[in-house]
């Protein structure tokens, strides 16, 4: 076989190259060109002068947010909301998958599954709308608590900063539980039925089977998704829940990194500061993904990358 040059190879696959090239350009423009914009974080960016004629300030903006107490509050909110979301999200999805796998009636199982996906497809705008309605002082939640005699007066929960993390966590679990259960359910379906049959002959109870067969068998899936989530810790609660469900009264507990960078960038027009925050976010996330991948090689062969 004659060794062909790269140019020859490209020419031989010219149609394939022509099909892929537009997308390469697209990725360069939309994924990689913004990375050049990172240089904005190191200058005092003035739109009039452009990046290269603006004054060089080095790490000034990084120093500014790192010494700002507000930044640590925002970081705390980000970690708290993401951590709660990952913890409760994972457990509820596994729980739902296990429950569904125990159901014998296909029609019932189908119905519950279909219903449980619904919130996943609905936008955060609609979801926060629903939560505002239900948790308002005239809403259903207050009404039920009053009638049951648990509380004696109505509370506007959406404007109480201490209940914000709980509300966001609940809304995220509510929204994604059914969707996240799909993968666990698929893992459960893949378990060899002989294991269950053997256990039945040995007189193992239902809970015993879940405890000693189902959970251990889907452990690899659980670990893999958990590791993936940890890599995503900074962005697990995105812009939407924090921005749409939060308001002036809850801002000390609702603002996360994404919203913080937005406030600096779009509302105060402090482009350089916002970019510095984005760089911090990206670098920290990369570190998390890297360590998550290191961690995953202990549990899963080959890692996740």
């Amino acid at each position: 076989m004659v060794k062909r040059t790269l140019a020859q190879k490209l020419w031989n696959q010219r149609i394939l190259v022509a099909m892929a090239l537009p997308f390469m350009v697209w990725m360069l423009v939309f994924n990689f060109a913004p990375l050049m914009g990172w240089s904005m974080a190191f200058v005092n960016y003035k739109p009039r002068y452009g990046i290269f004629s603006s004054e060089w300030v080095g790490l000034k903006y990084f120093a500014e947010f790192i010494t700002d107490n507000r930044f640590y509050e925002v970081l705390r909110n980000t970690f708290a909301m993401s951590g709660l979301n990952i913890f409760f999200g994972t457990f509820s999805a596994i729980g739902l998958a296990v429950l569904l796998s125990e159901v014998r009636s296909t029609a019932f199982k189908r119905t519950i599954q279909t219903v449980s996906y619904l919130p996943h497809f609905i936008s955060w705008v609609v979801v926060s709308n629903i939560f505002y309605t239900f948790l308002s002082s005239e809403g259903l939640f207050n009404d039920v608590l009053l009638r049951l005699g648990i509380t004696s007066e109505t509370v506007s929960y959406m404007s109480k900063e201490t209940s914000f993390w709980g509300i966001v966590t609940f809304s995220q679990v509510w929204k994604e539980m059914g969707w996240n259960a799909i993968l666990y359910l698929a893992a459960i379906t893949a378990i060899d039925p002989q294991l269950y049959e053997a256990a039945t002959l040995d007189g193992v109870t239902r809970f015993g089977k879940i405890r000693y067969i189902t959970i251990p068998c889907i452990m690899p899936t659980i670990m893999m998704l958990l590791v993936l989530n940890i890599g995503n810790l900074l962005n697990a609660t995105g812009f939407d829940p924090s921005y749409l469900m939060g308001n002036d009264m809850t801002v000390n507990y609702s603002e996360n990194l994404a919203v913080y960078a937005y406030t600096y960038g779009m509302q105060m027009s402090r482009y350089s500061m916002s970019t510095a925050l984005s760089i911090f976010n990206s670098m920290f996330s990369l570190l998390l993904v890297w360590s998550a991948n290191k961690l995953s090689t202990r549990f899963i062969e080959g890692g996740i990358l």
Binding site: A20, N31, P34, M36, G37, T275, S278, I279
Partner: peptide, 27 residues
């Protein structure tokens, strides 16, 4: 495909690093 390795790497990188709000806005 000759360009497969390169393109695949670009896709994976784009999943983990993003420029952020303001640089993207300028693009």
């Amino acid at each position: 495909f000759v360009m497969r390795g390169l393109l695949q790497r670009m896709v994976v990188i784009s999943m983990y690093i993003s420029g952020g709000l303001i640089p993207y806005y300028f693009v």
